[in-house]
Simulated assay, not measured.
Amino acid sequence: MGLRKPTRQWRRWHRWLGLLVAVPVLILSVTGVLLNHIDAFGWSNSPLPPMLARWYGAPVPVNLQGRQINGQWYAQTNERLFIGERDAFYCQSPFRGATSPRDLIIVGCGDELLLLNEAGQAIERVGSAFGVPAFSELGTIDGKLALKTPDGLVRFDVDHLISERVDPQSQWQPSTLVPLPSALANQIRSQSVPPSLNWQRLLLDLHAGRVLGFAGQLLMDLAALMLSILAVTGTVIWARSRR
Score class of each variant (00 low, 15 high):
197 L>M: 11
179 P>T: 00
173 Q>P: 13
182 S>R: 12
189 R>S: 06
205 D>F: 06
205 D>A: 05
174 P>A: 15
176 T>W: 14
201 R>G: 01
201 R>M: 08
191 Q>R: 06
198 N>I: 12
197 L>W: 09
193 V>Q: 07
184 L>V: 00
177 L>T: 07
174 P>T: 07
187 Q>W: 01
202 L>C: 02
192 S>H: 07
181 P>S: 10
179 P>V: 02
183 A>L: 09
180 L>V: 03
205 D>I: 05
178 V>L: 14
184 L>E: 00
201 R>E: 02
192 S>W: 08
202 L>N: 00
183 A>C: 07
178 V>H: 14
200 Q>R: 14
206 L>H: 04
174 P>Y: 10
194 P>F: 09
190 S>W: 09
173 Q>M: 14
201 R>D: 01
176 T>C: 09
199 W>R: 04
193 V>E: 12
189 R>D: 05
197 L>Y: 10
188 I>R: 10
182 S>K: 14
180 L>R: 03
206 L>T: 01
192 S>F: 11
204 L>F: 10
201 R>C: 00
180 L>F: 14
188 I>Y: 15
181 P>A: 08
202 L>H: 00
186 N>W: 02
196 S>T: 04
182 S>L: 15
181 P>H: 12
173 Q>T: 13
206 L>C: 07
194 P>K: 03
174 P>K: 09
195 P>Y: 05
201 R>W: 06
177 L>P: 08
175 S>H: 06
191 Q>I: 04
179 P>L: 02
183 A>E: 14
203 L>C: 04
190 S>A: 15
204 L>A: 13
194 P>T: 03
182 S>E: 15
183 A>Q: 10
181 P>L: 13
206 L>I: 02
181 P>D: 09
190 S>C: 09
202 L>K: 00
187 Q>D: 03
185 A>D: 07
200 Q>G: 12
191 Q>P: 14
200 Q>H: 13
188 I>C: 13
203 L>R: 01
185 A>S: 11
204 L>M: 13
191 Q>H: 05
203 L>G: 01
179 P>E: 01
186 N>I: 02
179 P>C: 01
206 L>W: 07
182 S>H: 15
190 S>H: 14
201 R>S: 00
192 S>C: 06
197 L>V: 11
185 A>H: 04
184 L>I: 02
191 Q>D: 10
173 Q>W: 12
181 P>M: 09
193 V>S: 09
204 L>P: 04
178 V>A: 07
194 P>V: 13
190 S>D: 11
194 P>S: 06
191 Q>W: 08
194 P>Q: 05
179 P>I: 01
183 A>K: 10
190 S>I: 08
195 P>M: 05
202 L>I: 01
204 L>H: 10
187 Q>N: 03
191 Q>Y: 05
191 Q>V: 10
203 L>F: 15
174 P>M: 09
197 L>A: 05
174 P>R: 13
194 P>D: 11
177 L>R: 12
204 L>G: 08
198 N>G: 09
179 P>G: 01
185 A>L: 04
200 Q>W: 12
187 Q>G: 00
202 L>R: 00
189 R>G: 12
195 P>D: 08
183 A>F: 12
203 L>N: 06
202 L>W: 04
185 A>W: 04
194 P>M: 03
180 L>Y: 11
202 L>V: 00
